[in-house]
C-alpha cells in the first residue's frame, strides 16, 4: 500500500526505470491518495526525468533509454493532467523547433524536444528538412517567442542564417529569441549569424531556452 510520502518517489523511480505501466498506475494511486496533480507532475514525474537527464549527461543512459523514460513520464502526465485545477493549467511558453532544410537527421532535435517539454515548454515541432520561411511563419502564427534551429550537416548552416535574415526583413526580429544547435554548430557560428544563443545538447538547450525567456 502506498503512502503519500512514498508515492512521489515511486513515480520518479518508474520514470527512471522506463516503466510506462507503473508510471500511469502510480499516477492514479497518487490521485486516490489525495496528492494534487501539480505536485505529482513536478515532484514525481519531472523529478524522475531530471534524474534521467543527469544519467544521460553522465553517459549512463543513452537515446533508447531516454526515449523510454520520456514515454513513462508522458504516460503519468496523461493521467494527471485532467486533475489539474484550471488555474494551474497556465499558458506555457511556446517554442518552435525543427531541423533546417537540407537535413533529415533529427535524433538530436527530438532529444531537445523531450528536454524542453520536461522544462515546461510547449514545443511546436516542425520536424526535419524545414524551410527557413516555415520557421518564421509558424512562430508568428502560434505566437511563440522562441525559435530553435538544429542541423547535423555543415551544408545546411547557411539556411540557419536565412531564418534570422527573414525575421529582420519582416521587421520582427525583436519579438523572437533564436537559438541554434547541432554537431557542426558552435558559439562562434551563432554569434556570426546573429542568433541569440547556442546550445550544445538537449539538456543545455532546455536551460538556454529558460534563460532566453528571462531576457524578454
Amino acid at each position: 500500500m502506498h503512502k503519500k510520502e512514498t508515492v512521489l518517489a515511486d513515480m520518479a523511480r518508474a520514470v527512471v526505470d522506463m516503466d510506462e505501466t507503473a508510471a500511469a498506475k502510480l499516477a492514479e494511486t497518487s490521485i486516490e491518495l489525495g496528492v494534487d496533480a501539480y505536485t505529482g507532475i513536478n515532484d514525481g514525474l519531472v523529478k524522475g526525468m531530471n534524474i534521467v537527464g543527469e544519467k544521460y549527461d553522465n553517459e549512463e543512459y543513452f537515446i533508447p533509454e531516454l526515449l523510454l523514460c520520456s514515454d513513462a513520464m508522458t504516460a503519468g502526465i496523461d493521467v494527471l493532467r485532467p486533475h489539474l485545477p484550471v488555474k494551474e493549467q497556465k499558458v506555457k511558453e511556446k517554442i518552435v523547433i525543427g531541423v533546417i532544410q537540407g537535413d533529415t537527421h533529427d535524433i538530436g532535435k527530438n532529444l531537445v524536444k523531450i528536454m524542453l517539454e520536461t522544462s515546461g515548454f510547449e514545443v511546436v515541432d516542425l520536424g526535419r528538412d524545414v524551410a527557413p520561411q516555415k520557421f518564421v511563419d509558424t512562430a508568428v502564427e502560434v505566437n511563440a517567442r522562441l525559435i530553435g534551429l538544429s542541423t547535423l550537416m555543415t551544408t545546411t548552416m547557411g539556411k540557419m542564417e536565412e531564418v534570422i535574415r527573414l525575421l529582420e526583413d519582416q521587421g520582427i526580429r525583436d519579438r523572437f529569441r533564436v537559438m541554434v544547435g547541432g554537431e557542426p554548430v558552435s558559439k562562434g557560428f551563432a554569434d556570426r549569424i546573429g542568433a541569440d544563443a547556442y546550445a550544445l545538447n538537449g539538456t543545455e538547450a532546455a536551460k538556454t531556452a529558460l534563460e532566453l525567456v528571462a531576457t524578454f
Binding site: M18, I63, P64, E65, L67, L68, D71, D106, I107, N110
Partner: peptide, 11 residues
Amino acid sequence: DPMIFFRLMGK
C-alpha cells in the same frame, strides 16, 4: 523512424 526503432531496442 529512428525514434520508434530506438524505443524497440529497449522494448
